[in-house]
């Protein structure tokens, strides 16, 4: 189980995330919604360790991980996919995924072995690429992929890490309509595994309705609503805080 208690971060007096207390239970998919600037990505950064909290705590399976670096949180099972594509651009698609498999296998400080001889890592990476339909592009540098394929690679890296907690930050942003189902099917497939916990930042309400067991709303860094998707989407708070703004956005 993942839990945040009064989690807060301030940038020069301004609280970007303000006292968020929330628990995410095993086997659930929680969608995190809220207008732009509500602190969703910042909340993610605090959980996965890219940012340090000013106050409050993060617990993973009962252990306090508030001050651990991102790498140690990753090794404890926190897997994070990024909103802005965040790959190893000059390395091949395969190598991007293979590195994630290697990290998961805990092989890093082997100075004198041959990376090429770890065929099990290679095979696992290829298997993950098959799942996201990128196997045919394995040898291409990540930078040469289309935007949609880069998003898929981002998800493939996350899958390869085999985390207990999956954190998706707008996984379908900027994808073409026919590419979106591939990603959503993958998230559905992960959800079938009841050992996994999924956190999903998502703007698209149809996606939220289809996938989420629970929806929380962040507004100006605060937890504004929490409940079943149909209740939260219908609530006045969301209508005002989220959908109202969103209507103006579109």
């Amino acid at each position: 189980m993942l839990e945040t208690r009064s989690l807060t971060v301030r940038f020069g007096g301004q609280a970007a995330v303000d006292g968020v207390t929330c628990a995410f239970h095993r086997g659930t998919l929680t969608a995190i919604v809220g207008p732009n600037g509500a602190g969703k990505t910042t909340y993610f950064n605090l959980i996965s360790g890219q940012l340090r909290a000013t106050a409050g705590d993060v617990f993973l399976s009962g252990a306090r991980i508030t001050t651990l670096p991102a790498s140690r949180r990753a090794r404890r099972g926190l897997g994070r996919a990024f909103q802005l594509t965040n790959l190893f651009p000059d390395l091949s698609v395969l190598e991007n995924v293979r590195l994630a498999v290697q990290a998961q296998a805990g092989i890093g400080l082997d100075f004198l072995g041959l990376a090429a001889r770890h065929t099990a890592l290679h095979d696992r990476a290829m298997a993950v690429l098959e799942r996201v339909n990128l196997a045919s592009r394995a040898a291409v540098p990540a930078a040469a992929l289309s935007h949609g394929d880069q998003r898929k690679l981002e998800v493939a890296i996350l899958l390869a890490m085999q985390p207990r907690i999956f954190m998706f930050d707008e996984p379908t942003a900027g994808m073409s309509v026919d590419e979106v189902p591939v990603i959503l099917d993958l998230i559905e497939a992960i959800r079938q595994d009841r050992d996994r916990t999924i956190l999903l930042v998502e703007h698209k309400m149809d996606v939220v309705r289809r996938l989420a067991d629970r929806v929380i709303v962040l507004h100006q860094g605060r937890l504004a609503a929490d409940g079943a998707p149909e209740d939260v989407v219908a609530s006045a708070v969301v209508q005002e805080a989220y959908l109202g703004v969103r209507a103006g956005d579109v």
Partner: peptide, 13 residues
């Protein structure tokens, strides 16, 4: 290539 991402994968940069 990307120290930030390497850290997020679990490598202590």
């Amino acid at each position: 290539e990307n120290a930030f991402r390497a850290e997020a994968l679990g490598f202590r940069v």
